[in-house]
């Protein structure tokens, strides 16, 4: 078993008094795809920036590729590909130029960078956009270009901070497909997201983060098994009646969550629960039975939704 690529132990980042990251520990093995799942403000980006060796930790141990980021920043960053939460493509340069210039930051020879730039444009499905202005690209294209740029140094580890936030469904699927290929080729991925479907699609293993601490850790399936039931029944009774109805649902399902706009019933068999409820004379305006997801895990752990 080869050594982990990333080792974080009791990692802390404080801004003044406020602890954005409050003692989190995890390890990522080579070739693994590891996720940080959590709502806005959980401390995901801060963690990513520390792992990316661009932000100094306040306390704790952090080793990336066997090196301490405080001392070996440039060395570590030479092996990373970084896709930050907000694209920071160079809008003063054209699409292909962005790759050329970025490759040079790693001290790679011009000729090699030029070859990679063309390969990466193909990989990102941007072949015909090489000469376009960055501002003329759609959100999805910009994101793919950022990923292509992160690959220009052929990184061992790819850090992706909310890679698909703000994209439309089609653009997300294209992006997921690209990331899947990287995973197949053996690139280690560390990614953050607040989309449970993304985490389920891309992560071999993940930690659920909230308020700078880790709430749970495991594979997506294991987390769902541990913290949720097999199925979920979602019902809406109208916003003014939800709370009232909830009082009359005691004893139904394994567990009940009452949200402002809907009621969730956790159970092994959602349809059966729905029948019991309608049998008792309660008729929801809408109802839906679905499989449990990481969203439900998060709700269980924190009492809040991932996306407010």
């Amino acid at each position: 078993m080869s050594q982990p690529v990333i080792v974080a132990r009791d990692l802390v980042k404080r801004y003044g008094e406020f602890a954005a990251v409050d003692g989190i520990s995890f390890e990522v093995a080579p070739g693994e795809s590891f996720g940080l799942l959590g709502p806005n403000g959980a401390g995901k980006s801060t963690t990513m920036r520390m792992v990316g060796a661009v932000s100094t930790r306040t306390a704790g141990d952090l080793t990336i590729l066997g090196l301490d980021p405080d001392r070996f920043g440039p060395e570590i960053r030479s092996q990373l590909g970084v896709v930050p939460q907000a694209d920071n493509l160079d809008t003063e340069l054209r699409v292909r130029e962005n790759l050329l210039v970025y490759g040079r930051y790693f001290g790679l020879p011009r000729k090699l960078v030029a070859e990679r730039a063309d390969e990466l444009l193909a990989f990102a499905q941007l072949e015909d956009k090489g000469k376009a202005k960055v501002d003329s690209l759609s959100g999805g294209m910009k994101r793919r270009l950022t990923i292509a740029r992160a690959l220009v140094n052929d990184p061992r580890v790819l850090l992706l901070d909310e890679p698909t936030t703000g994209l439309d469904p089609q653009a997300r699927h294209i992006l997921w497909d690209r990331l899947f290929r990287l995973k197949e080729q053996g690139t280690t991925l560390l990614l953050t997201t607040h989309y449970m479907d993304e985490a389920e699609q891309l992560c071999d293993r993940l930690v659920v983060v909230d308020k700078g601490t880790i709430m749970a850790e495991g594979t997506p399936a294991a987390l769902i098994r541990r913290y949720s039931s097999r199925e979920v029944l979602e019902m809406r009774f109208g916003s003014d009646r939800n709370a009232d109805v909830a009082g009359r649902l005691a004893g139904i399902g394994d567990r009940l969550e009452v949200l402002p706009d809907r009621i969730l019933v956790y159970s092994e068999n959602g349809e059966a629960e729905l029948e019991r409820i309608t049998g008792a004379g309660l008729h929801p305006i809408t109802s839906l039975v679905r499989r449990s997801s990481l969203e439900d895990v998060f709700l269980r752990l924190t009492g809040r939704s991932l996306i407010e």
Binding site: E75, F106, G107
Partner: peptide, 16 residues
């Protein structure tokens, strides 16, 4: 493998 990876990183950091 780990120290191999580390050595690669140390080498790649030289130019920058």
């Amino acid at each position: 493998a780990a120290s191999d990876v580390t050595r690669a990183a140390l080498a790649a950091g030289r130019n920058p």
